[in-house]
């Protein structure tokens, strides 16, 4: 996932062509603890960069998932809505949240690469 880019709110986006796949970082799932509920966006909804797109909840915390880039939602990962615990097992892989068709790929330049994100996490400790 070398092309994966991260936000300060701990979302990641991985791009193939004009399709971006979005999820939450391993750090985020760990900080939340056991995930008990995921709410995903509706397919067809247009998201602006930074818009509230999904919700992820543990027993004692709830967190919004913001879209790292603008675009139209074209797919959602129903498996994590059915089994929220999957997010704890594979946050940066199989437990992606949703896919969008990017409307402005240039936005990605403002996001962090893996090394920068790791450095950012160190500043939060």
């Amino acid at each position: 996932m070398s092309d994966t880019r991260f936000t300060k709110d701990h979302e990641w986006i991985s791009v193939a062509g004009d399709i971006g796949t979005i999820g939450i970082s391993d750090h985020a799932q760990h900080a939340l603890g056991d995930i008990v509920f995921v709410e995903l966006p509706e397919i067809g909804r247009h998201l602006a960069q930074g818009a509230e797109a999904a919700v992820v909840e543990s027993v004692k915390a709830a967190s919004e998932v913001y879209s790292p880039a603008s675009g139209e939602v074209i797919a959602i990962n129903q498996a994590i809505a059915d089994q929220p615990g999957l997010v704890n097992e594979g946050a940066e892989g199989a437990a992606w949240f949703f896919k969008i068709r990017l409307s402005d790929p240039a936005e990605l330049a403002g996001l962090m690469d893996r090394a920068t994100y790791d450095g950012y996490l160190k500043t939060l400790e």
Binding site: F37, E57, S58, V59, K60, A61, A62
Partner: peptide, 14 residues
């Protein structure tokens, strides 16, 4: 007590 993330002590203004 469950599904507490709906409530004010967790979700605050939301």
């Amino acid at each position: 007590l469950t599904l507490s993330t709906r409530e004010q002590h967790i979700r605050r203004e939301k």
